[in-house]
Design a protein around this nucleic acid. Structure first.
Lengths: 227, 227, 227, 227
DNA sequence: CATGAATGAGAGTTCATTCAT
DNA sequence: TATGAATGAACTCTCATTCAT
């Protein structure tokens, strides 16, 4: 049977039987595959069969672990935003350097733990699909945006209460910190990969620049720029 | 321009006041409808029939003007990133205030002319779909990102050459100006509409805050923040 | 292009264009096809594509008229149980023969108008699928069983009130009339078609026999058969 | 009978009172579960996993005993139409009451041994699925319809030869006896369970009524009902 | 030009069946 | 013998696209 597509690899089959029992590993592999593809192509344009194939299983297997494509999507989001906030909050409590250093530490540590990892794709994903999945957007807001907002707010309050920072409108100070993160994210996952010709952005240097600006604003005696 | 579907009846329009919705407006209406829906739901989740219905025509008519859904998408992007850069460049040349004011003017004028209008959806759209439409992303980069980058760069160079700003790394200074715009955009089109519970952001105030920060950085004597 | 599968019939195409506009006729044709197939193979084993093919349209067209397979099923049931009861009730009112003749007329007329037509498949269908579609079964009961029951009951009451029939338990007398109809139905649609070897049943003669039996019971002086 | 999966452990059963659900009962438990579910939902809508679960085994185990779902279905039918005809035939030979009583006894005994038990589901099942399983329908006809027909025919012939019944067309007399059984069956398994609102049918009373009618016809001097 | 009925490739989902353990 | 993870063919349903009118 020379035409059988299954032949030219039959000797490998004995080595890695098709039906390995690896129930524990499956969900994780599927979630990884799904994260990558969802971030790359968006929810609708990603076919479940692709996800399954990338995880090395068949389409049917995916539905063994996730009842629907939408549930898979939700699981991807849930999986990747797991409470890193506990860890961060503890670090914040334990931190005993200057408030400026704490701010700097926060953003760099975000980049290292989220921004530069595949997990950062989640934010891009949620932003792209939020209008299609309001429920997920709400979930994301509740699980990520709000805790993050509280964390940064506490950092700033610490600075103010210690006299490191001058009193300021916390809302907009927080946005000033979030804004560069979103910029980096979108660059990393959207235009960056599509326009390789573009001048490279060094995220660490960009974060440094932004933190410097923000800290300038926070610590400097406010001066009026004539308008 | 004999091939333009918009031309050959334009003189009759004034004569037929109501009824007979101006035929030559069709493509524009379709593009408007498509922009709204693409921004709201993404490319894949928007059905051409919906676009047609929102534009008040039948599905078939849409294909009379745009050979495919993808072409419609491209037309939407192309149509909506039309070069305001000429206008802006002229204003920049003519501007004779302080460089700080010029920066401030740039960002506020961006908000008024782009950010707060439906046109801002395009950036969100392009960012969301860039990976699926690399060609479009490249087009966008060439038509928007790069001219915008050049414009801002020239603004900064003007400040430096006039002695208003201290010399600085222009790349990151430009990113500092772009970053809040992207933040506002994504907030306006993604999470904002889905999470009405969230604290409202006042874009003008946010821009003010950001501009102040950046100008601080640009004009201030650099001081070292111990790290 | 000798390999094109579309060629060998191209001359016929002009004769019967593929896309005839026959919106009005479609639903009926689809319902007919669906009735036949549902009765033959049951709901689950009938593929919508088969129904469409039998109606001479494509799969997609079916969904233009019926939003889902289940809706098609419901429409088939609804379509075929349309109120013939008005007509029958009028005939009943107008009938001025003997009550025995009226009973005889009822059953024979049922056979001619329902039993021997494809419409009789509906009852077989509903009985086969009732447990899967309780809602439909209820609908059928409300639209067919109950009106039919009332009709037969009125026939019997007419006989009793005119002194043609002796007083009797109407419930069971009605069941006696329904029972042979169901027998005929199931024979016609279930075992009959599968076992052509079987002795043929002449429905008219069977009905005659049954009516004679029932009328015997209705008109005869009750006598006790020792048990 | 070495191939019977039920044999080789039967003596141990008494010794292991609880636990270790008797292995040799498996096929029987599966057949029971399958009968119930097939009757309730039909062949196609019943999932083998459900059958297995109801029998307390895994999906794989079911396929150990029945090579396919279709084979399971056939086994269910074959198993449940087991010849009670030997028993009945013997009772018929031994019966020495009146022929009227024998007819009455036949139908009541059918109700008690078949009609009111789950076994009656088989007939409903076969009728519902006959068109999809003509082979099974033929089998059923051969194993049930024909022996039943012969049995009833012999009962009637006994009556005629003893002078209890007048000569008559045996075919239609037999159908008159079968018809109420089918009515009861379909009521019990189809519309009845779905339309709990409906007037209850007392099967015993219904059978009584029907038998009385039929006996009337069989014993009475034929009289003409004007038509 | 405009329509909308018709199409059919393609996607998500189900489930009988297999087989390594 | 029993399990249940894995498979993939089959099915329902969607929607961009076509084309006769």
């Amino acid at each position: 049977m020379p035409t059988s597509p299954a032949d030219h690899e039959s000797e490998h089959d004995a080595a890695r039987p098709r039906r390995e029992r690896r129930k524990e590993a499956r969900p994780g592999e599927l979630l990884d595959a799904a994260l990558t593809l969802f971030v790359e192509k968006g929810f609708a344009a990603t076919r479940v069969e692709e996800v399954a194939a990338r995880a090395g299983v068949s389409k049917g297997t995916l539905f063994l672990y996730f009842p629907s494509k939408e549930d898979l999507f939700k699981a991807v989001v849930r999986e990747n935003i797991a409470g890193r906030f506990d860890e961060w909050n503890q670090e914040l409590e334990a931190f005993d350097g200057s408030s400026a250093d704490l701010v700097r530490y926060c953003l760099h540590s975000w980049w290292e733990r989220i921004g530069m990892t595949p997990a950062s794709g989640i934010t891009k994903l949620v932003m792209s699909e939020a209008r299609m999945f309001p429920e997920l957007a709400a979930f994301y807001e509740h699980e990520v945006i709000e805790p993050g907002d509280r964390l940064l707010r506490r950092v700033l309050e610490r600075g103010i209460s210690r006299g490191d920072f001058r009193p300021t409108n916390l809302d907009y100070a927080v946005y000033s910190l979030i804004s560069p993160m979103i910029f980096l994210l979108m660059w990393k996952h959207s235009l960056g990969p599509c326009c390789p010709s573009t001048r490279e952005i060094d995220p660490v240097q960009f974060i440094d620049t932004q933190v410097d600006l923000i800290l300038h604003g926070l610590v400097a005696t406010p001066h009026t720029l004539s308008s």
